[in-house]
Design a binder for these strands. Sequence first.
RNA 1: GCUCAGGUGGUGGAAUAGGUAGACACGCAGGACUUAAAAUCCUGUGGGCAGCAAUGUCCGUACGGGUUCGAUUCCCGUCCCGAGCACCA
Length: 920
Amino acid sequence: MDYNFVEIEKKWQTYWAENKTFKVKEDPSKPKYYVLDMFPYPSGAGLHVGHPLGYIASDIYSRYKRLKGFNVLHPMGYDAFGLPAEQYAIQTGQHPDVTTEQNIARYREQMDRIGFSYDWSREVRTCDPKYYKWTQWAFLEMFNHWYNNDTRRAEPIAELTVRFGKEGNLKVNAANNAQKEFSAAEWNNFSEVEKSEALMWYRIAYQGETAVNWCPQLGTVLANDEVKEGFSVRGGYPVEQKKMKQWQLRVSAYAQRLLTDMETLEWTDSLKDMQRNWIGRSQGAEMIFKVSNGKREYDMTIFTTRADTIFGVTFMVLAPESEWVDILTTPEQRSAVDEYLLAVKKKTERERIAETRKVTGVFSGSYAINPLTLEKVPVWISEYVLAGYGTGAIMAVPAHDSRDYVFAKTFNLPIIPLIEGCDISQESFDAKDGIMCNSGFLNGMSVKEAIPAAIDYVEAKGIGKRKINYRLRDAIFSRQRYWGEPFPIYYKDGIPTPMSESELPLQLPDVDKFLPTESGEPPLARAENWTYRGYPIEKSTMPGFAGSSAYYLRYMDPHNDSALVSHEADEYWRNVDLYIGGTEHATGHLIYSRFWNKFLYDCGYVCELEPFKKLINQGMIQGRSNFVYRIKNTNTFVSYGLKDRYDTTEIHVNVNIVNNDRLDMEAFKAWMPDYHNAEFILEDGEYVCGYAIEKMSKSMFNVVNPDQICEKYGADTLRMYEMFLGPLEQSKPWDTKGIDGVHRFLRKLWRLYFDRDEFCVCSDNATPDELKALHKLIFKVQNDIESFSFNTTVSAFMIAVNELSDLKCNKRSILEPLVIILSPFAPHIAEELWHLLGHNESISFAEFPKFIDAYVVEDTFEYPVSFNGKLRFKLNLSKSMSAKEVEAAVLADENTTRFLQGATVKKVIVVPSKIINIVC
RNA sequence: GCUCAGGUGGUGGAAUAGGUAGACACGCAGGACUUAAAAUCCUGUGGGCAGCAAUGUCCGUACGGGUUCGAUUCCCGUCCCGAGCACCA
């Protein structure tokens, strides 16, 4: 009987669906395990072979954990709000709802074909009102909370209102963007509008005016992680900085907790590093400088991490957008400053980035007083100082900061070295290393001593204090687009007012067109009656990350109408044990989700501080494009090896008509009418194509569709081959050559169970060789799966099946466990064989075979022995000893005992086939 | 510029903790079965040198040093590729 994967796979996929095999519910008798994939955005192009890589890995792990007795939650859904559907809608007039629905159906069909063990009864879609009710709910909760820096948690805004009534905002230690201070009396005299404004400075979801990334082509603002090198990540349009009033989330309030709690996570170092970088903690001090524009004196605060260098301050620099610019510009300098500001403003974000390190600046005309030396130093304005970080003003120490150095050289400002023996003739000395000089009371100290000493000094003198700054900014939360969650906010006499929870979801209204209005308002302005009790409703919608921030919680209790997740479900499933997805979300989704979770934790809705315990980033699968070489002005194509003899054009050729870089010439002629009469110059009778590794995309004809692979080889082959391709985390090109090897393996495995056409498994006792092959496999598979080394697991299966094949093994005691071990990787063939072996229940309910250590030790005569890592001699041991016997023999050996000289043996480690380590 | 991850045959990649480098697979070459093809199976396959041969021997994990009885693995320096951040004071 042949291995008929088409029939087998269809049969078991239907069986799993009909029997709801992978449906789970809370079960206190079993330990839980939550395996999550980053849910996909359902694009019109469907899945290509790169998409399922992570899903296959998570599915293998889920199935493995089930065999190990865990109650596994393994759900899937769709991140369905987003720009492509909206842009398609603008072009075609087709409602995004319709295209989204179609795309989801296609995704589902493709995923089903690969045989994933998802619990589809828990599916979520972010664009479903039943789902986004809870996105809106979370927003309202954030609107109704503020962040208390003393208790380090979010607290209800109602309590803040009470405190304002009693003591104003002076004593409140909160994360805020307050514009002014007020007393209790002032608060009590505030109008409703003034109160609303003041509270807005404290809300965790707040409306505030800041410089935002504005993308004119998309007609919307974007968050920092949606912009790369001055262009929008989606679409690649230029982005400019603009001051606008937008909804924001006070993510910055959580900066320290996001940093601290990261220590507990099992994420890769590089990913943690990216987040650390993004959060950008830096420890230093704020210092007050007296500044004067000739008429009046002011206190100006700056931030520095190098308080020790204060004796070397020779000028100050303001960001062009700083409010100090206007105050400190003197009448004589006014026109020069205005000209400079105009020039800076005209630059696009892109030019600014391109011209990084080009030095520009202008003198304000004012001076500052160095609080320690009492010297007068000029105040300059330059774009190298950023308005959004620290206070938007710096003290410049050209001797020990490379940017200040270049600026000083350009504008001929003095440079004072502060570290003994440093050479600053060519460049600044930035290292925090050396002995201080020219620095008054700091002289003779090392830099590391001088930094805290300087801060202590300024704190004592009342001219500064310790301060920690973060680069993490609040997240811009509104988008001027249609296809997103509407804000449950209306404007009552101009005051942003939340709707009540019972009125959610606020459904997305229908509009005639999906474009902004002529007057530049967002598309929702087109909706008829977009009002609430006669008041206008907010017209922006929420960004993509809103819906994806808490979806992992919703899976725990997806049909609950009265809560995002019930306490019971949350207490049982807690958080995600294993999360698999791409690195591209490192500074977006993975920060927002952590923030969102911590906020819900503060409010008591969830029981875990972190959403994703362990995270694995699967690599990207790139395309492998093939080329043919057309001799210019002819219809003749020359094979790769001969192309240099002619003047040729390189043309992408559909990879699906190329096999092992050999072109199927007939298929090529049929591919496009132009090539119908193509002629070929061959090498050894074959046409060899060139290749390149590129992004998988339609235009390069290098897209490989998983359906094609399933059709030709079956889902089990696809699953195993994707794992076999290389380490999960590594990016690699898809290359179909090699898939035959994996397919051959499955056929070979199938044949183990058959004698000619008869299913043939006997119940004789297994031989030691057969047992050894099996147990080596169990050992290897367990180790490898636990360390996510799936590519070597596939190799281990191949070795085991080759060995059993050579032994002509047909023993049930070997072949039955083999099926169980294989089932996470190739579930369809495993399920079929499992039933042929006489089982009625799905293999998912089987137990992973126990490993007997006696069969792991390899036969070998000479074991190298290492003693605390140092090799001293070799030891002769007999064949087929168990680990324990080897250990006993080591301890009994004369050479060993002589060498140990009475030291106590703590541990004897026998590594199969390799070496014995003796730890004393 | 800074941070992180990597560099192993013709190719993808193995090598548990410093212990036989190149597992497994692809490709290639040769062979068996077959009228033939497909499928299947077997053998060989890092490089050099010696030999009819079994085999022997030297060199080999980007490059140069170091630690070690022993280094693909650890340390220092150089080069190259990839990813992220990019005037964050």
